[in-house]
Amino acid sequence: MSGRGTVRRLAELTTEEAASAVQNSPLVIIPAGAFEQHGPGMALSTDLVRAEHVADRVAAEVDGLAVVGPSLPLGVSPHHIGFAGTITLSTTTFAAVVREYVDSLHRHGWRRVLVVTGHGGNNASLTTVAQDLLVSHPDLEFAWTPVTALAAEAVAGMGVGEVHGHSGEAETAQMLFLAPHLVHPDRLVAGTTSLAELDPTARLSRRGGHPTLTLRYDRLSATGVLGDPRRATAADGESIVDAVVRRIAEFVRAWPTA
């Protein structure tokens, strides 16, 4: 999928252009990522890279309806802190940053904001912010979306194993398509691929239909990888990204402007 229009980034506008953009581009898309381990073969910025690319492609696809705001490069990653290079914000700090960011946009007249998060660890905080904004900013409409989860069919089509996810087939495929220079194919290794490989407590944390149990990733995988990234291809990544962009763009076009 190729965008039909140009990408307007708030960071590249003057203050006068930003004032006009409030009327001409009533939606701000905010890419949110994380700075955390992605196994031996992928960059710490993987989640942000994917979010930024998706945000740009959506903005191009909806041609003029949206501007892309400054990225949020750090996220909620305490579950990856056992691996070198990981930097995390607390849930409170991340939520406060998002809330104050959105409040600034609101002061200048924007009433629709969409956060594209490449990191699942941000989801709970974004949900909390959304609930708070219903009270503090009742005239603001705040939405957020994950990336990979919107392309479940494309991911399933890759033939992923029983355990997959972080730094696995789907994430690696996206990076091979979007930023291949940040992937080291010779260093990709299989991580945890089956429930049988996990200790009993970690096994419980990966099963659906049960109470949620949050564990650090070094309890789930010695390499920080869930799945087998060696099976990923750039073609798979293109299918995933296309599906994600299409679904988000459809949402944006259907989102009433008033």
Rank of each mutant, 00 (worst) to 15 (best):
H210K: 04
L27W: 01
G159R: 00
T128Q: 09
W110V: 02
H184D: 14
I29W: 02
T223Q: 12
G118C: 12
I248Y: 06
F177W: 15
P146S: 09
Q37N: 10
A18H: 06
I30C: 11
T117G: 10
T193A: 11
E61W: 00
F251R: 13
T201S: 14
A19R: 15
P26V: 12
A170D: 10
L133P: 02
H210E: 12
R107F: 04
V58E: 08
V97Y: 11
R50W: 02
G208W: 05
Y217G: 00
A84D: 14
R111C: 11
V244C: 09
L204Y: 12
D236K: 03
V160L: 06
G85Y: 10
W110T: 05
R187W: 04
Y217R: 05
G41T: 01
S90I: 06
L27C: 04
V245R: 02
R231W: 01
F251Y: 08
V98E: 11
V252G: 07
P26M: 04
L27F: 08
R246I: 01
S2G: 13
G69K: 00
P180L: 07
V76K: 04
S194Y: 03
G208S: 12
T148S: 12
A258V: 09
V22N: 02
V28P: 00
Q131T: 12
L204W: 11
L182C: 02
V102A: 05
V155C: 12
A258K: 04
A151L: 10
V98Q: 09
E169T: 11
P31N: 02
V244P: 07
A59W: 03
D242H: 08
A170S: 13
V7Q: 07
G165N: 01
T214N: 07
R230H: 02
S221Y: 05
L134P: 00
R230P: 04
T93K: 01
R4S: 14
V62C: 07
S104P: 11
V189H: 01
S71V: 03
L176N: 05
A170P: 04
I87N: 08
N24Y: 00
T117L: 07
G33K: 01
A84P: 05
V244Q: 08
G64H: 01
L226D: 04
E238S: 12
I29V: 13
V62M: 00
A18E: 15
V62E: 02
H210C: 01
F94G: 07
R246L: 10
H38P: 00
A84C: 03
S239Y: 01
G33D: 08
H210N: 03
E141F: 06
R112Q: 14
A51F: 08
S194M: 03
H80T: 12
A11K: 01
V163Q: 03
L188F: 04
A32R: 00
T93S: 15
R207N: 06
A51I: 07
V76S: 10
A151P: 10
R253G: 13
V241I: 13
L65E: 14
R206E: 14
G159F: 03
S45M: 08
V76Q: 04
G64A: 09
E153S: 15
G41H: 00
W144M: 07
M175E: 09
L48A: 10
R50I: 15
A149G: 12
V58I: 14
